[in-house]
Amino acid sequence: MSAQSEWGVAEPVRTLRDRYGDEIELTDEQDESIVHRILAEFRHGGNVYAVLQSKELAKEKEVAIFKVSASADGEPMLETIDDDDEWETVSELYDEMSFPGPDRP
């Protein structure tokens, strides 16, 4: 299945934006807080994903992609996507959304 046909089953959501606004502060491995802009959120295949970008990532024209889950108290939690196929699919969906047609990287 191509990213184009898979994108048809992705649904925009506002899980993080409704709770935090357009930016979210994450803590890195050195316990430093880094502000990330929320670029996109969508549901696909029963999961919610978020595409975030810090100023450092923006300089490199990169993004961070996370799976969004909920803690026991309903607080959104960001999870690393460990499965390569899942990460590739979500990345392609975001590319399709951001760069339609021949402009795609």
Rank of each mutant, 00 (worst) to 15 (best):
R37I: 07
A58P: 08
M97C: 05
R14M: 04
Y94P: 10
F42L: 05
P12Y: 01
Y20A: 03
L26G: 05
A70E: 13
L26V: 09
A72C: 07
F42A: 03
K67A: 11
T80P: 12
K61G: 01
S5P: 04
I38M: 02
D83R: 00
T89V: 10
R17S: 05
T27M: 07
D103P: 13
Q4F: 15
A3D: 14
F66V: 00
H44S: 13
S33M: 14
A58I: 05
E6N: 01
D31E: 11
D95T: 08
V48A: 00
P76H: 13
D84A: 08
D82P: 08
Q4E: 14
D22H: 07
D22E: 03
D22I: 06
F66A: 00
E75F: 15
E56N: 04
S5Q: 02
D73H: 11
G45I: 15
E92S: 08
Q30F: 09
E62G: 04
L78V: 01
S69D: 12
A72N: 06
I24D: 03
S98R: 11
V90H: 03
D73T: 11
L26W: 15
G21L: 03
S69W: 10
E62K: 07
S98A: 06
P100S: 03
E75A: 07
E79K: 00
D83V: 07
N47Y: 09
F42V: 05
S5V: 11
L93D: 00
H36E: 06
R17D: 00
G46P: 10
V9P: 10
D103E: 12
D84R: 07
D31L: 07
M97E: 03
D73N: 09
H36G: 00
E25K: 12
A10G: 09
A10V: 10
V68S: 08
W87V: 03
Y94R: 05
Q53D: 06
G8C: 06
S69T: 14
A64H: 13
S69M: 09
L16G: 06
A70F: 14
V13F: 02
E41W: 14
L78M: 01
A40L: 06
Y49F: 11
A58F: 13
D83E: 06
D84W: 15
H44R: 10
T89Q: 02
L16P: 12
E79I: 00
M77V: 12
A72V: 12
N47P: 12
E75M: 10
H44M: 12
G101M: 04
R19Q: 03
E56I: 02
E29V: 01
R17I: 00
D85M: 14
V68C: 09
D82Y: 12
A64I: 06
S69E: 10
E25H: 14
E86L: 13
I34H: 01
S5N: 01
